[in-house]
Simulated assay, not measured.
Amino acid sequence: MRMKRTLATVAAAAIAATGLVACSDDSNDNKDNNAKDGGNVTVKIGTTESDQEAWRVFKDLAKDNGINLDIVQFSDYSPVNEALAQGEIDVNKFQHIKYLAAYNQSSGNDLRIVGSTEIVPLALFWKDHTSLDGIEGKEIAIPNDPSNQGRAINVLVQAGLLKLKGNIADELAPTPTDIDKDASKVSVVPVDASQTPSAYNEGRPAIINNTWLDRAGIEPSTSIFQDDPNSKEAEPYINVFAARKDDIDDETLNKLVELWQTPEVEEAVAKDSKGTSVPVYRDKQELNDILDRLQNK
């Protein structure tokens, strides 16, 4: 794994100033020695959300536990996994299992899961309404991207508003063609995720993910229905720490998972998500089994 003990404050400052890789390939013996002599280990971690409060708390907590986090901010999702696969970073935390599965399938790489963080339920919003009453016959805007469309349809299935046809290709990722229109109470219109708040503001019901809720200033607490974070349908959307296959049992990376799951970080995550995030504590093997099932499909 690409981690290295910080030997001196001056060296650490030089690394930070130049933006170079903060560590080099070390043997397991060297990593063990770092732990024994009390030296700090530097881990380069990639994310798209480093401006959130949870990351400040996480970084401070890691430092208290002998881990210097070199947080690499990406402006877009697409390069983060590739940077990990190429060894430019040691670990990342920005994605759910389904996104990771799709990356592995398209790239031919085999990134794996170190541990779980949280899940953010996907919810249905309808301006000036507090329940599903009166929604029958309405047209509901749903995001059309691969990461959210199937989940949005399943939200409406869980709400009892849609029925799916039998023997569909993938029950975890249904498409509009899988909907039994005659047996359903509503219809759906797939739109770009950025347009779902516009549909909401026009008075139409809409499935809106947290990114666009925040940008549109819509309070998550005003949803009229959300999916069950403990359901099988929600499993692909558990957010995770990902690493290269050979590193998923690394002591330091597993320590980072433990630290993210502490009350201090979870409180900050809840604040960032305005109370919508739900902590997830799943066994590493179970998480990778879910990953494998999604990739096989």
Rank of each mutant, 00 (worst) to 15 (best):
I15A: 11
R293Q: 14
V91W: 05
T130W: 05
A270Q: 08
L287R: 04
R244V: 07
A101C: 13
L132C: 06
D247R: 06
N109V: 05
K138W: 02
A152T: 02
N209W: 10
V278F: 01
S75G: 15
K163G: 01
V257Q: 02
V188F: 08
G275C: 12
A13Q: 11
S277A: 15
E139W: 10
P121F: 04
V114F: 08
D170F: 14
S50L: 05
A141R: 01
E202T: 13
M1I: 14
L291P: 12
K59G: 04
N288W: 06
D292Q: 14
A13V: 10
A17F: 10
A35Y: 11
G87N: 12
Q73Y: 06
G115Q: 05
V72N: 03
L84M: 08
L253Y: 14
P146H: 09
D64V: 01
T175S: 15
I15Y: 06
K44R: 13
W55T: 05
V186A: 06
Q86E: 15
L100E: 13
L259G: 04
Q195W: 08
R5K: 15
L156P: 06
A62R: 00
T130D: 15
Y103A: 06
L294M: 11
N254I: 05
L162K: 02
I168P: 03
L100K: 12
A159F: 09
K297R: 14
G134F: 08
P121C: 07
V189W: 06
L172R: 13
I113L: 02
S107T: 09
S106C: 06
A141M: 01
T9A: 15
R204F: 09
N288H: 03
G87W: 12
I97S: 01
I153Y: 07
G87C: 12
L164F: 12
C23I: 04
L132N: 00
P220S: 08
Q158C: 06
N210M: 11
E49P: 00
V188T: 10
I71W: 03
V278K: 14
K284V: 04
T42M: 10
I168W: 10
L132D: 02
L161M: 09
L294P: 02
A152L: 00
S78M: 08
K127V: 05
I208R: 04
S50A: 15
E82C: 03
A22N: 15
P79V: 03
F94V: 09
P236W: 02
L291R: 05
E266G: 02
I248K: 07
T177R: 13
